[in-house]
Design a binder for these strands. Structure first.
Lengths: 345, 345
DNA sequence: GGTTAGCACTCTATAAAGGAGAGTGCTAAC
DNA sequence: GTTAGCACTCTCCTTTATAGAGTGCTAACC
């Protein structure tokens, strides 16, 4: 059995119809709705072939057909045409996100909100490790006699702060000179290098003068490098109830529980690959039992070569892939542009 | 018709049983399970009275009875006995939360996680406006030529940062002197006063020397005072599926959608009152149609007289109030203690 | 007068039975 | 290779019957 143009067009019609109706599709429906110039009987034969080839499935003998994971895979790889966003949708994105880098936390939330509103699915936004980012500024700010805040500004405009407790009291004057010294020495290196730089001659010289740094820098480096640096935010979770596939409560619960389990969710997102363009994982490709009837579509945005974060949409395998891909591409480009403008300054 | 001891005990039995079984309770069940020394027929008569008085309801003629909102209200006000947390549960809380004030964001998440795990309901954690908190330190940290971060540390140890864009380039030396000047003048006043202080003579004098402050302080004050200062975090949303009342998908969707709608959720939390002790709102008392079959139990934690935040549990009106109240009381006390230790330092 | 046993009655939930409808696969004709 | 026709299959919905739980009422009891 081999694939031909007509089979592809029938498969495309079945998938398009199933995505919009969630009902098994019969040969007559295809014959009526899509003017393929062939009768339902012919379509019936072709659909039977497509089933044999593994692209369609039958819920039961006398029902229509439903795309299989393999069918969706073929669809997203070869058949679907990515729709451009309407002018209005683009305007919404630009208006909501603004054109300047704001606080990272705020961008994450806004992005998640827009994603879920435009797609009507659940959106995920993850900010990655900032290991690869370069330190633009570091500031030590006193809190009380035994604790201080280290404020880090990276070249991509990300601001982070970490509370650090010290054993001995520290004066604010001392912190000021510490700030100056740290900026002199560490500005420009990457966060990842902070870990390793404790070996360098330069470091030893400066620690000799400012002994507290020897405690601070490792603490800081650790805090920035551990999982705390990574985080994932979800929005539009109630959207999952828009789809009949989640009228089964246990399925809805599974999905929701997974989304709340940030650790697991991040590992799934991290497995998605971070090449340029949009990544799609369908059903069992996700390799996680809780979401075996879900699809995940993600895109990575970056500053230069550094991955800054991932955005994604999770929903039923019967997903409007064309639309979701379009939205993700647009928003990723927009975010990347925003970061780049920031870098240029 | 008037209430007597026996009616109260029957009501208590009905509510306790309904909370654990979610099934309408019949007179025979009460007679068998709870040794009240009276027959089912007597109980039947009493239950009929309790219904007439508005404390019980009948789903249909030949079913058992279910507590009404009024019944729950009486129960939480007069009947329930708050259970103490087990040693093991207390240990979990202490272990997870630690004993020192960490970053506020991290505390919020941990608290939400513990709350939902211990109660098996959905937890809410809100941090309130920090208007009433006093400024301990303010620091301006350069980001790039046209933007800076204002880092605020309050006396209760809360750290906040806000990105501020400036029209003209600012040197980091200038920011340093600005930081010194601002600390001199503003340390010790409350965040709320930041708004009003622009009228004072002192302020005018300092602005005369550091003209940029005239732009920064209002921006900062606004950013700290607007809704951004308030935030609410939810955890354990998938727990709602543990309860048969949410096997109806539209109900689950309603609740979930409300929890995602932070603005509305905060206004509900803010309406809850912030007296000492635990507040309970049952069903229509919440005055919101989406959650008219939910109950919300909240507690406020504070530093001195300032409200720092609220923690709460939302779930079906058939809620284990006694347990939830115990958990909330314990955690609020614990958080308050943590803040106070911080203040003493 | 309050309490209780007994019983008829009501209502729901569950299972069984009987179409209606949609879709298929096969055959035979084009 | 394509198509019309048709018997067959399977689900879904409605109807019907039945079991079970619980009530309210009455009459007897202490």
């Amino acid at each position: 059995m081999q694939m031909d143009e007509r089979k592809l067009r029938i498969l495309q019609a079945v998938i398009a119809d199933y995505i919009s109706t969630a009902q098994p599709i019969g040969s007559r429906t295809i014959a009526k709705k899509y003017k393929l110039g062939i009768s339902s009987a012919t379509i019936r034969n072709e659909m039977s072939d497509l089933e044999e080839m593994g692209y369609l499935e039958q819920p039961h003998t006398s029902a229509g057909r439903v795309p299989s994971e393999r069918g969706y895979r073929l669809y997203v790889d070869r058949l679907m045409q990515i729709k451009n966003l309407s002018r209005r949708e683009q305007e919404i994105i630009v208006r909501e996100l603004g054109d300047r880098m704001d606080e990272i936390e705020s961008i994450i939330r806004k992005t998640a909100r827009i994603l879920s509103q435009l797609t009507r699915y659940t959106s995920l936004v993850m900010n990655s490790h900032i290991r690869g980012c370069r330190l633009r500024h570091i500031h030590f700010v006193p809190v009380d006699s035994n604790s201080l805040v280290a404020v880090i500004v990276t070249d991509s405009g990300i601001v982070k702060n970490t509370i650090i407790k010290t054993t001995d009291p520290v004066s604010s004057e001392y912190l000021e000179s510490l700030t100056r010294a740290a900026n002199d020495k560490f500005a420009g290196i990457t966060i990842g290098e902070l870990n390793r730089c404790t070996e360098s001659e330069d470091y030893k010289r400066i620690v000799y003068r400012y002994s507290l740094l020897d405690t601070l820098i490792p603490l800081l480096a650790e805090s920035l490098n551990t999982s705390r640096g990574e985080d994932v935010y979800a929005d539009g979770m109630s959207n999952i109830f828009n789809f009949p596939e989640y009228s089964d409560v246990t399925k809805a619960k599974n999905l929701l529980a997974l989304i709340e389990e940030k650790e697991q969710l991040m590992s799934i997102l991290n497995r998605m690959g971070s090449g340029k363009g949009v990544m799609i994982s369908i059903g069992s490709e996700l390799d996680n039992n809780c979401i075996k009837d879900c699809s995940l579509v993600t895109a990575t945005y970056r500053a230069g070569e550094n991955e800054i974060g991932k955005i994604g949409i999770i929903g039923p395998t019967r997903m409007e892939y064309d639309r979701v891909v379009a939205v993700l591409e647009f928003i990723t480009d927009y975010l990347t542009g925003m970061v780049e403008r920031q870098l240029e300054e």
